[in-house]
Design a binder for these strands. Structure first.
Length: 475
RNA sequence: CGCGGGGUGGAGCAGUAGUAGCUCGUCAGGCUCAUAACCUGAAGGUCGCGGGUGCAAUUCCCGCCCCCGCAACCA
């Protein structure tokens, strides 16, 4: 029996609508989860929403909503996106759940017990407009960038700090293991960063200024800084400290996190130090994906180049959106996306490629075979599985599309549509073979495009050519 | 300053010490089962620049130029 597999995305912060980066991360994680299940592994796939902190309070106030109403709304938006992308998560955790509060407070206690939490006075420049501390480097002409007519004031505040500086040696050890971070070069980057020295970081805020957070155990005057509580979700979702799922999937399983490339310090350094402090096993691997740009630039409303996940699903459909994100986005590095390119990729790969192949084979099968083909059970080629084991989603798709191309070639070369007229038995045998190969392609597609796999399987078993899987775009 | 990634045919990418490959686009041919799809072939690159080591470098080494990230509590 294979080792259980725990997988989690980062939790999107709900201060705005879901964007394409969220969709990318979700789809990548979902593909891994489905792949592992396909291999017979017991999987726990976690995602959810991060709902505390200053920014959220501000965003709620700005929209004139009660903060609860506000976070409920956005949690709903992310759940809708999950459905639109056909995600197979086992748990959608919200950091405002009571169970999560309990876990966050418990890890706090354990870190405190380990001697890693202490109180310190923090002095800094505070912008009343933003209600937050600014760094020197944030200032524009000595003023807050968001409030140029307000002079930041010197403010002193007492906060709790976490002794990250205690964990340099242990983090170096952790990060020295290849595989602790994927891709490898990001691991080396993180290692170098840790070797240069670590500073303690503040993990609480004064409750009178910011009440929207998890109360610090034993000190009602402070709430946890949102990072500290949010990171805990990865284990609170499993019922830590006592839950059976925690024992099975975290302690007894492979623990894999998926995150954006801006997350290295949080996921692979802060969070891992917290785990060590609380004496919980570290994550085995954190996989970091790149960002998606549009027309060579960061997507932004002012540039008008935003491509939203909901627009993608509306235009191309669920599986096609998954295809576009998996095959045409580099798993580790930034990738560019424009509507022109998306249309091109969609038409070439799905309309002309996969969709057309299904149509041509199923037309033959439906016409010449008496009944559905019973698929033969088969394994998966290592060339295919190794790509997914290594988070190389685009290569996995490339492998499948090579198989699609070979099948197209085979049809052209063997001419079943002629053969069946000159030698019916041989023709039918050939068509049966082609249908089985189509079925095998569908199976490999499962982690990437689950509904498409189902559609192909159904067509083969029922011996019925399906409606166009991928309709041509109206140009 | 530092650290990291990258510069390959029109575009996007892969790759390797010894005929440079893929997708899209272009052109020609083939096929007719299929969603004007599919198959084959062709045109198109001195693999950023300059040195070095090799019988041989796009691939290794040195120097330079250009582009893009990171430089921590922004969740």
């Amino acid at each position: 029996m294979a080792k259980p597999f725990y997988l989690t995305t980062t939790l999107p912060y709900v201060n705005d609508k879901p964007h394409i980066g969220h969709a990318l991360e979700f789809v990548q994680a979902d593909t891994l989860a489905r792949y592992k299940r396909l291999m017979g592994t017991d999987v726990f796939f976690n995602t959810g929403t991060d709902e505390h902190g200053q920014k959220i309070l501000e965003a709620a106030q700005k929209s004139g909503q009660d903060v609860r109403t506000y976070v409920d709304h956005y949690a709903g938006e992310f759940q809708k996106l999950g459905a639109a992308l056909d995600l197979s998560y086992d748990r959608f955790i919200r950091t405002t759940e009571p169970g999560h509060y309990a876990a966050a407070q418990e890890i706090w206690r354990r870190c405190e017990q380990a001697g890693d939490i202490y109180k310190k006075t923090y002095k800094g420049l505070y912008c009343v407009g933003d209600e937050m501390f600014l760094r020197e480097s944030d200032l524009v002409n000595g003023k807050c960038p968001n409030h140029p007519n307000m002079t930041p004031i010197e403010l002193e505040e007492e906060n709790y700090f976490f002794r990250l500086s205690n964990y340099q040696a242990k983090l170096v050890e952790y990060l020295s293991r290849p595989g602790s971070i994927v891709p490898e070069w990001r691991r080396e980057e993180a290692l170098k960063f840790v070797e240069e020295g670590l500073e303690d970081f503040s993990i609480s805020r004064v409750a009178s200024r910011l009440h929207w957070g998890v109360p610090v155990p034993g000190d009602d005057s402070q709430v946890m800084y949102v990072w500290f509580d949010a990171l805990t979700n990865y284990i609170s979702t499993l019922g830590w400290p006592d839950g059976d799922d925690f024992k099975k999937f975290w302690e007894g399983g492979d623990v894999v996190q998926v995150a954006g490339k801006d997350q290295v310090r949080f996921q692979s350094i802060m969070w891992q130090a917290m785990l060590i402090s609380a004496q919980v096993k570290n994550s085995d691997t954190v996989f970091y994906h790149g960002f998606i740009t549009s027309g060579g630039q960061k997507m932004s409303k002012s540039l008008g180049n935003v491509i939203s996940p909901n627009e993608l699903v509306a235009k191309y459909g669920t599986d096609a959106t998954r295809y576009l994100l998996l095959r045409h986005v580099h798993p580790f590095e930034d990738s560019d996306m424009t509507w022109d390119k998306l249309d091109e990729w969609y038409t070439a790969g799905l309309v002309n490629g996969l969709g057309n192949l299904v149509a041509r084979i199923m037309q033959l099968a439906q016409t010449y075979l008496a009944e559905g083909v019973r698929p033969e059970p088969a394994g998966f080629a290592p060339e295919y599985t190794s790509t997914l084991e290594n988070f190389e989603f685009a290569k996995a798709a490339d492998y499948v599309w090579e198989a699609i191309h070979h099948l197209d070639q085979k049809i052209t070369e063997t001419e079943p549509f002629k053969l069946v007229k000159t030698d019916e038995a041989a023709g039918k045998k050939l068509i049966t073979e082609l249908t089985q190969e189509l079925y095998a392609i569908g199976r490999m597609l499962h982690p990437l495009m689950p509904a498409t796999n189902e559609a192909i399987k159904k067509a083969v078993v029922e011996n019925k050519k399906p409606e166009n899987l991928f309709p041509r775009l109206n140009v």
